[in-house]
């Protein structure tokens, strides 16, 4: 029997097969990016709970109606104005009576110390004292980090929408408010450490978050207009 000569396998079609698979994956791939705005919903409050009293000057009301029109503090506005108005509201550089109240951390610490002394006299609520002490620690580290002039705004942005508002509009407004807060955070971070908020260590981020919390309140939608 003549020995058959060992023939080399032709690898030329390998590329074709690979191309076929490649094209299949190219077509089926959806580079799905899961990105979005993460928010925490407020926990459900029992209906008989007392509403905290908030001064009128400390509430920044943004209304979006069913025709996607925008009213900020009762004036018709354009969405592009939200960011600047929000920042002014929180920072209140000229101590305007209509904008949010700013409380110095030095004052807050004094007040908290008095509260702790008062709480310690009623010895039955140890948890309360512990909580207040934690808060005092936080305030002190904020003061140490940013200096004596640091103040926190008592302002809250209240975003109210109609049931007929478009979701896209709602996100646009929400986005602008967050942009305002992020810019404030970034500014404080840059002034103190020369870095953006996202590049800070977790401890530093916590301090900045304490000064500029995401104070956005979403009321249940009403029928207005």
């Amino acid at each position: 029997m003549a020995r058959r000569e060992l023939q080399e396998i032709n690898a030329g079609s390998m590329a074709d097969i690979a191309f076929l698979l490649l094209i299949f994956f190219l077509v089926t791939t959806t580079m799905e990016v899961s990105s979005g705005i993460t928010r925490m919903l407020p926990p459900l409050v029992p209906p008989d709970a007392e509403h905290p009293d908030v001064k009128e000057r400390n509430v920044f009301i943004i209304l979006v109606n069913k025709d996607n029109q925008l009213a900020i503090e009762d004036k018709l506005r354009d969405p592009s104005e939200i960011k600047q108005l929000c920042m002014d509201f929180f920072i209140n550089p000229y101590n305007n009576e209509d904008l949010s109240e700013r409380v110095l951390y030095t004052e807050k610490i004094e007040k908290l110390k008095r509260e702790i002394i008062a709480a310690e006299q009623h010895e039955n609520n140890n948890d309360n004292v512990k909580g207040l002490n934690e808060k005092l620690k936080m305030y002190n580290s904020v003061k140490d980090a940013f200096g004596n002039k640091i103040a926190r705004s008592s302002g809250v942005v209240s975003l109210q929408n109609d049931r007929g508002t478009d979701y896209g509009k709602y996100i646009e407004v929400q986005d602008q408010i967050i942009a305002a807060l992020n810019e404030l955070r970034n500014k404080l971070s840059n002034d103190t450490w020369g870095e953006d908020f996202d590049d800070l260590s977790l401890v530093q981020q916590k301090l900045v978050k304490e000064v500029f919390p995401f104070a956005i309140s979403e009321a249940e939608p009403k029928k207005f207009n």
């Binding site: 990016v33 899961s34 990105s35 979005g36 705005i37 993460t38 928010r39 925490m40 919903l41 407020p42 926990p43 459900l44 929408n161 109609d162 049931r163 007929g164 508002t165 478009d166 979701y167 896209g168 709602y170 996100i171 929400q174 986005d175 249940e220 939608p221």
Partner: peptide, 28 residues
């Protein structure tokens, strides 16, 4: 984008009822 907020609000309310508070508005 063009969904009305009414249904979104209802969904958020349901999520609050079961203590699922961490949400994300998917957006590009």
């Amino acid at each position: 984008e063009e969904t009305k907020m009414g249904i979104v609000v209802d969904v958020k309310e349901e999520l609050r009822k079961v203590q699922a508070l961490r949400i994300n508005y998917a957006s590009k």
